[in-house]
């Protein structure tokens, strides 16, 4: 089962290595990982999507909490989350195909970020399953390159994850 874990950490050098190393040596698989600084420049937020059962999840949370630089760990149910991932897709596109791709972009609410004589680069921020659908729609044109940021997530509603 997939779990989304948000971790507030001290914004020090080496913290990401400690968190990632912990996942590796305890045998927890990471599906996606995203890091960025929060509104407080001394604190970074790591969002990890990991795979595992209840036991694994409990161990992940407990072991993360033991790292001195980890300030707070929260695990969210998928239903209470607002989660987004950004993807850039460079796709082969002859001039005659442009209208088709523009229409796919419009339907998916993607942006056209770059264009050349025979390629088009599209940008979409959305939930992980919708990104997959988007990628599948573009595949017949010939995908040249895909970059994804990893999922970031936040709890829905008025509650926020603070110290």
């Amino acid at each position: 089962m997939k779990h989304t874990i948000s971790i507030l950490v001290e914004n020090h050098a080496g913290v990401l290595a400690r968190v990632a190393g912990l996942f590796a040596r305890r045998g927890f698989n990471i599906d996606s990982l995203a890091v960025g600084v929060t509104d407080d420049p001394k604190i970074s937020r790591i969002t990890i999507v990991a795979d595992g059962n209840e036991y694994t999840l409990e161990q992940i949370e407990k072991q993360l909490n033991k790292l001195i630089d980890v300030i707070k760990v929260r695990h969210f149910e998928q239903s209470e989350l607002l989660s987004r991932e950004l993807v850039l897709i460079k796709v082969a596109c002859q001039p005659a195909q442009r209208p088709e791709l523009i229409s796919i972009a419009e339907i998916a609410q993607a942006k056209i970020s770059d264009i050349t004589v025979n390629t088009m680069t599209l940008e979409l921020s959305d939930s992980e399953p919708r990104l997959k659908t988007f990628e599948e729609l573009l595949r017949p044109y010939g995908i040249k390159e895909v970059v994804r940021t990893g999922t970031i997530a936040m709890q829905k509603g008025g509650v926020s994850m603070k110290l």
Binding site: Y55, E58, Q59, K62, Q63, N65, K66
Partner: peptide, 8 residues
Amino acid sequence: VDPAEIGK
């Protein structure tokens, strides 16, 4: 003293 040992 270590909660991570409980249930491990």
